[in-house]
Design a protein around this nucleic acid. Structure first.
Lengths: 181, 181
DNA sequence: GCTTGCTATGCAACGAGTTGCATAGGAGGA
DNA sequence: TCCTCCTATGCAACTCGTTGCATAGCAAGC
């Protein structure tokens, strides 16, 4: 129920179109709040009709026009109100962990297939970590001299980096365990 | 789309009722796959009518009767089939990370309220870690001599422990950042 | 000229997940 | 005795999220 709030935060950091928001969700914000473009377009419409955001048609050359959204005063008020509320426990869906426990009920061929999948999955997260590290150097070259807003963005990025490192180390353990069966 | 599979794995590890499954999801399995009792009851019904699981009425004294579910042959086949498929990327909903970035748009009182919330959240995860560590000692006293199935359960638990430790360290960073604004 | 790919928005249908409520027996405390 | 809590199951209504598809202009390569 907080996709609205994630969108408000993202639009306050930087106004943009539904498409641009979808790309941000794919990249940085998607680390802690996944959403597809369909969801985002639908919620943006509702937020606009509720007066939380305002839209502006922007013509572009070489590309289709876009509707760029900005946060309105009432949207900011909604966000302020929400920020005072209780932090909801994180919801997680880790397909892989289910599979690892399921491996106890697979045969040798099934376990071999799972090992290959875990390796593929691991490679994907290694890329994610590399992307984060490149992004960190690009966006936060001097960590000791950041604006307040940037310090917050940076600490969230550090959370993503810590998560990926933890995950990679754990996947190595998983692979050792699967191979030892 | 894989609640069914999480339930199959859990029932293969140990048959049980919908209520018991809901409690397992609250505790161990819920770390990587959250589900409410409503979802579980609904899916169990569908799985039973599809012949994936079989139910048995179990009378208990001092408590209401329960329907204990076990995995049928076709359920095992479904799981084996699923285990050969591709690992789905994990879906995450981290309310807290959205709030941290949102803190850039809050006033001093709002930031103070968020700091208190993060501390509360941190205390909850500290308890979770302590519970995991107690559970590890209780359920896996001798890690060097485990059955294959137990080795897999243990490595998944280790993932939970690593996650909680990473999270606590990150929350300390978040608190330092929030306090420094 | 054709295909492929990217930006950009959107509908419709379906399936997954949440919330509120209801029932019902027994345990334990005020 | 009444109230509250725990076990145990479930319905109904609603919202959220996913999937498949459609449109449309422009760019780049074959």
């Amino acid at each position: 129920m907080a996709l609205e709030h994630a969108i408000l935060v993202s639009l306050l950091e930087q106004p943009g179109s539904g498409y641009e928001l979808a790309r941000r969700f794919e990249r940085s914000i998607g680390r802690f709040w996944t959403a597809t473009h369909q969801q985002i377009y639908r919620v943006l419409k509702r937020m606009e009709s509720d007066g939380w955001v305002t839209a502006e048609e922007v013509g572009q050359d070489g590309r289709p026009d876009k509707r760029s959204y900005s946060v309105a005063a009432s949207g900011r008020a909604v966000l302020t109100e929400w920020l005072r509320g209780a932090v909801q426990p994180e919801a997680v869906r880790h397909d892989l962990a289910v599979r690892v426990r399921g491996a106890a009920f697979a045969d040798a061929a099934g376990r071999a297939a799972l090992i290959a999948e875990v390796e593929r999955y691991r490679a994907g997260h290694e890329e994610t970590l590399a992307r984060y590290l490149v992004g960190e150097k690009r966006d936060f070259p001097d960590v000791s001299a950041l604006e307040p807003g940037d310090r917050l963005q940076h600490v969230v990025l550090q959370g993503g980096i810590a998560y990926e490192r933890m995950l990679l180390a754990w996947l190595d353990d998983v692979l050792i365990t699967l191979r030892s069966l």
